[in-house]
């Protein structure tokens, strides 16, 4: 995974609460067995007026001109600011894949759903939780200032606003580390191989019925 240290980008506002992962990436695209190529389908049901599927050429589809991602002033945006409980619902990692493939590097919201939040870190996307007041003031500023950009520094855990204000944000150290290093978590876990094997041996003695399933 690509490491994430700093990022500067145009901000897209999506002021709705409870955006679920079905809305982020509708079901018909879950049929893909690829890990990339989901960007054109992000927010598909809102972004296009017609229905598409995995085989539809997106260039032939009817764009919804009113949807925020289609507004010219937000073209090229790479930071998404959203409402409460962003990413609720299905565990599909296809949702953060779509966010990533669209080119969004940072999502800022007052709260996130748990599975989505954790999935982001595994795909080089930084989810930042800020207070409702802060997010609401960001929405106001984005609205009144065309070309509104933010500068994110993960190492320092800060967001630099265009007016020079530095907003700090909290993040769990292991998740911060994961993004900064772009680390392969599986390799890190396999570094504990012996500990896992010792645990497994003990566990097998304590609960042998959990190991008693021969393959049928």
């Amino acid at each position: 995974m690509e490491a994430f240290k700093t990022h500067r980008g145009l901000v897209i506002p999506f002021n709705r609460a409870n955006i679920d992962t079905d809305v982020m990436l509708p079901k018909q695209y879950l049929k893909s067995i690829r890990k990339t190529g989901y960007g054109d389908w992000l927010f598909d049901g809102l972004r296009y007026l017609d229905e598409g599927d995995i085989n539809t050429d997106t260039s032939t589809r009817t764009i919804n001109p009113d949807f925020v991602l289609n507004l010219p002033r937000y073209k090229g945006g790479s930071i998404l600011v959203a409402g409460d409980n962003f990413g609720c619902g299905s565990s599909r990692e296809h949702a953060p894949w779509a966010i990533r493939d669209f080119g969004i590097k940072v999502v800022i919201a007052p709260s996130f759903a748990d599975i989505f939040y954790n999935n982001c870190f595994k795909n080089g996307v930084l989810p930042i939780q800020l207070s409702s007041e802060r997010v609401s003031s960001l929405f106001d500023q984005i609205d009144t200032n065309e070309g509104y950009e933010l500068q994110i520094n993960l190492e320092r855990q800060s967001i630099l606003l265009p007016d020079g204000t530095d907003l700090p944000f909290d993040i769990d150290p292991p998740q911060r580390e994961q993004l900064l290093e772009g680390s392969d978590v599986i390799s890190l876990t396999l570094g504990h191989r012996d500990t896992i094997m010792r645990f497994e041996e003990r566990h097998r003695k304590v609960a042998p019925w959990l190991f008693n399933n021969s393959i049928v």
Partner: peptide, 29 residues
């Protein structure tokens, strides 16, 4: 407690998994 293999320095734990169920939509990748 029955499944915590170890708590790592960063405060994350490794939790041993006894059963893993897979289906076609989220496993290919």
């Amino acid at each position: 407690d029955m499944h915590e293999v170890t708590e790592m320095k960063d405060g994350t734990s490794l939790l041993y998994i006894d059963r893993h169920i897979l289906h076609e939509v989220t496993s290919a990748q």
